[in-house]
Amino acid sequence: MSDPFALFIAPFGEFLFMRHALAACLALALGCGPVGMLLVLRRMSLMGDALSHAVLPGAAVGFLLSGLSLYAMTIGGAVAGLLVALIAGAVSRCTTLREDASFAALYLVAIAVGVLIISMRGTSIDLIHVLFGTILAVDDPALILVAAIATLTLFTLALIYRPLIVECFDPDFLRSVGGHGGAMHSIFLVLVVLNLVAGFTALGTLMAVGMLMLPAAAAHFWGRHFWSASLIAVVIAFFSGYSGLLLSFHCNLPSGPAIILVAGCCYAFSLLFGAKGSLLSRYRSGPHLTG
């Protein structure tokens, strides 16, 4: 196994399931990179985690009705995620409870309901499949679904890029010029849910948010503008998928956790050595004098 080709390329040339998994990682990276960066910019990172768990009861209902059917679980997960987002927004508008607190409360209930529904009919293997995913089992329909969501995400972001960025930094200005900030926020939440559903089909509900948030958090330490940081997040996400698949193949490890572990290592490296705001850059800038 000393041949670099055998180590880094041969698994994808020899096995169709590895090529499918790598293509799914690329599609996930393209969709999750910019969406994750927007979550970081809007300080909604934990909301992404909450929404990733919110899709579970819908996916569980799809499982209860149709077994491990991709389309039933995907539609159920998307409906559940959007419903939780709408309810959390309504609660924050009608009460004094902030939106992040509403999401936290609803996602805890959602994940409990989802686990209970799956346990009613499925086995522990089914539960592990839903929670942690099986990216090595991605087939053509799943790959088409993930690619379609990535394409829709990039197209939508290109259309609403300016108002979405303005709404991140100055929502009052956007409202004053009739920019429909509420609509931009709602469209963005839909994109978050769709990308979490795409990640769910490959990585499961517990791992999907890792592909969304870890590359974006790592890219925050390198990129100085939104699109440069988004591109770096895409590269980190794809590198994590590629390296995680190789790690799982050669070391006989579960693929989903291996991918997220590599993304976590990229985040740790960026936190220490990144070009912007990292521990190293702050150390080099020296102490800040005040007064």
Score class of each variant (00 low, 15 high):
Ile160Lys: 06
Ile236Ser: 07
Ile87Cys: 04
Arg175Asp: 15
Leu136Val: 13
Ala90Cys: 01
His185Arg: 12
Gly181Glu: 01
Met47Leu: 06
Met73Ala: 05
Tyr71Ala: 10
Asp126Gly: 09
Phe273His: 14
Gly36Met: 06
Ser92Arg: 15
Val235Cys: 14
Leu253Ser: 04
Ala229His: 03
Gly182Glu: 05
Gly179Gln: 06
Ser230Met: 06
Leu194Arg: 08
Ala21Val: 00
Gly264Asn: 04
Arg19Tyr: 08
Arg19Ser: 04
Pro254His: 08
Phe132Asp: 04
His53Asn: 13
Ala54Met: 05
Gly241Met: 07
Leu143Trp: 00
His250Thr: 15
Ala218Gly: 09
Val146Tyr: 03
His225Asp: 06
Asp170Ser: 13
Leu7Thr: 07
Val40Leu: 04
His129Ala: 15
Leu56Ala: 04
Ala268Pro: 05
Thr153Asn: 10
Met47His: 07
Phe15Leu: 09
Phe173Asn: 08
Leu214Val: 06
Ala218Leu: 12
Glu14Ile: 02
Thr134Tyr: 05
Leu65Tyr: 13
Leu30Arg: 03
Leu272Pro: 07
Ala229Gln: 10
Pro171Trp: 02
Val55Glu: 01
Ala23Thr: 13
Ala27Leu: 01
His53Glu: 11
Ser69Asp: 14
Val262Phe: 02
Ile135Pro: 01
Val262Pro: 07
Thr134Val: 00
Thr151Ala: 13
Phe15Asn: 08
His185Thr: 11
Val35Tyr: 15
Ala59Gln: 14
Val193Glu: 06
Ser243Asn: 00
Thr95Ser: 14
Thr205Met: 02
Tyr107Ile: 10
Leu152Ile: 12
Val91Pro: 02
Leu246His: 03
Met73Phe: 01
Ala198Lys: 01
Asn252Met: 01
Ala148Lys: 11
Ala258Ile: 12
Phe238Ala: 03
Thr123Arg: 15
Pro163Gln: 08
Phe249Gln: 00
Leu280Tyr: 12
Ala158Leu: 03
Thr123Glu: 03
Arg284Met: 11
Leu203Tyr: 07
Pro163Phe: 04
Leu253His: 05
Val40Gly: 10
Leu64Lys: 07
Leu143Gln: 03
Leu56Asp: 04
Ala60Tyr: 04
Leu174Gly: 06
Arg43Trp: 03
Ala90Leu: 08
Ser228Asp: 13
Leu70Met: 07
Gly62Pro: 11
Leu28Arg: 03
Val61Trp: 12
Ala110Ser: 15
Leu97Glu: 10
Thr123Val: 09
His288Gly: 00
Ala90Lys: 11
Gly178Tyr: 00
Leu159Val: 13
Ile160Val: 14
Tyr242Ala: 15
Ala216Arg: 00
Gly13Trp: 02
Thr205Asn: 05
Arg162Tyr: 00
Leu191Gly: 04
Val190Gly: 11
Leu136Ala: 08
Asn252Arg: 05
Arg224Ser: 12
Gly181Ser: 14
Ile259Met: 10
Phe173Ser: 08
Tyr242Trp: 14
Phe155Lys: 00
Arg162Gln: 15
Cys168Gly: 06
Leu196Lys: 01
His20Gly: 06
Gly122His: 15
Ile117Tyr: 00
Gly256Trp: 04
Ile259Arg: 01
Val235Met: 13
Ala142Ser: 10
Leu16Ala: 14
Leu280Trp: 11
Thr156Ala: 10
Lys276Val: 15
Phe15Trp: 05
Trp222Met: 12
Arg162Ala: 11
Leu174His: 09
Leu28Gln: 08
Gly122Thr: 10
Leu143Phe: 01
Leu70Pro: 08
Ala21Gln: 01
Phe273Ile: 12
Leu86Asp: 07
Ala90Val: 02
Pro163Cys: 04
Ala112Ser: 15
Phe132Pro: 07
Ser2Tyr: 07
